[in-house]
Amino acid sequence: MRLYAAVAVSGFRRYATYRVATAAGVFTNTVFGFIVAYTYIALWNERPHLGGYDRSQALTFVWVSQALLGAASLIGGGFQEELQERIRSGDIAVDLYRPADLQLWWLANDLGRAAFQLLGRGVVPLAVGALAFELTLPTSALTWSFFLMSVFLGILVGFALRYLVGLCAFWMLDGSGLSLLSVLLTMFFSGLTLPLTVFPGALGDVARALPWSAMLQVPVDVLLERRHGAAGLGAALGFQALWAVVLLLAGRGLQAVATRKVVVQGG
């Protein structure tokens, strides 16, 4: 376990070395936050209580999205491209002979990255948003801690999804199409484009049941205290945890198949 802790610390430090990139990320997130915020203001003026949010809650949704953009890899980034590249170039051989578990290694690495990006790229945009607009942020420390727990589970789900996509590089020489598809699905079904509560009927039900909603929609609803009480929180966090377990296990399965393919067929 100490190995993976060390890997996570290294993942954190890796991203921490690039200060200019971090500053650029913060700047971009903040600018986009303003653009989307004004779009939402226009939308919510036209249709108040769209998706069950009032204007302030909708703006909170915007700024939390920007704060989580890097940490939860809502528009890509993170380890997935690196994993694909290592598979494509054969560098994965180095990872395979190490006495360490491939999935745990990458997970630890990605959690380190996410922790850095949550602090480095998350705090400032949210603070700027809170200063510039009237946001609905909870006063209860308990809600904040449930929110962080939900964010953590969302990051796990995001990792598990992207690990599956990354492993496909064992079968596909060019994974860029699949990566693009993955980013589009994430952007839409996480709620980044519009909160999933806005979608009506069956589309909304399906969107809210898919794993991507665990990455953004659920954490925001926990923060907005729309999921509250033991039952509400239990259902929200349970939903995320269930998807995390299912997808991580699927990743292990796919990893076993991929490793066998490499080991037996030479990739």
């Binding site: 290294s10 430090r13 890796r14 690039y18 560098d91 180095v94 190490r98």
Partner: peptide
């Protein structure tokens, strides 16, 4: 190939 961490 390398086992070293590129950025660290």
């Amino acid at each position: 190939r390398t086992t070293l961490w590129w950025d660290l």
